[in-house]
Design a protein around this nucleic acid. Sequence first.
DNA 1: TTCTAAAAAGCTAACCGTTAGTGTTACGGT
DNA 2: ACCGTAACACTAACGGTTAGCTTTTTAGAA
Lengths: 195, 195
Amino acid sequence: MTVPTGRRERKKAATRQKIADTALRLFLDRGYDAVGIREVAAEADVAVTTLFSHFACKEALVFEQGEDFEQRLAAAVTDRAPDEPLIPALRGEIQALVRHCTADSTAPVWRMIDATPALRAYEESMRQRCARTLAAAIAADPALSRTETASRTIARFVIDAYALARESDAPEATVDEVFSMIEAAWEAAAPSRRT
Amino acid sequence: MTVPTGRRERKKAATRQKIADTALRLFLDRGYDAVGIREVAAEADVAVTTLFSHFACKEALVFEQGEDFEQRLAAAVTDRAPDEPLIPALRGEIQALVRHCTADSTAPVWRMIDATPALRAYEESMRQRCARTLAAAIAADPALSRTETASRTIARFVIDAYALARESDAPEATVDEVFSMIEAAWEAAAPSRRT
DNA sequence: TTCTAAAAAGCTAACCGTTAGTGTTACGGT
DNA sequence: ACCGTAACACTAACGGTTAGCTTTTTAGAA
């Protein structure tokens, strides 16, 4: 509850960071598949079991940064101005995420992810969790008044926009094009107004 | 090209079938995670390496039947009557697939899949391949005249409909609801007609 | 029929990610 | 100063997967 600044937690965070940094360096250097867990642990000077107490699996080492994805999308729904429409808010957030993936500093990592089936699959599973969180946030907003199914559907569509943009040559234009389709789908799911 | 009825290919198919049958029986009996590859191979009376020459991984053993998924969806696009609209044709196909998953004969398998993270993930990867094939089929039909991006988008949306229906309590109703949203998205992607 | 090339299946032995079991240290609160 | 516990380490294994190599089976030519 106090701001987490015990020596203990600082050391823990440092260990975690050192593992992630070491892993990413080795992976980018020699390829994800060519570097084994035992080697990462040795290079970071920790036991293999310690590594796995910080990260659930090998793939998770790569996604250390940018884990907040999930929170950010949900926040884009819950924290928007009371009269701000949903879809543009989500489009803005997706655009920001896409820009982050294509930024110079992170681009090599994303290129590695795209080139590695295991990492693509892991990212996909993260996206699914993300879609569920987003669906819950949408369904929870009474102002939107859509079906459970419609909420889940739109959430998946939004995640699709991100996935399609990541695969695209012109990510930002792709986001816009997909979102114009999402907008239409969202309107089509509106409750009929003559009650 | 001749109907494949050499002794060789019959024996090979038989071996494959025996492995798949044995695996499914053991999995349904005692749980997917509780049965190891070595045990499946022993029970089917083949070497482990033989098993892996027929199936790419453990998960693939479960999806032996219903692999045609991919072809069927693409066929629903390419084989439809010249003036039949795309979306209803796809909805019909998805409905058929969903019904197949809930049929009494296959329901236990799908229940096992839903209960096993590894199998859910594998199914998701199959869906992605499927979406790509479907996107190609849609993009290849000049009568539809949509963008590459629009084709890919609709393909993903259609696959989403299937995924959402599988997770739903009322699969057929879910398919209909999602498809009404897809229909709107599809129309919104139509090329503007005043050229 | 007999022979041969190749496909299919087998065996061994390992690699790699991951985990259980069991200590050992270092820290935080008392 | 002391105790409970969180963090880390060590060993040893398990389960999926593959490489390397040998043996069996089959298709088709001679």
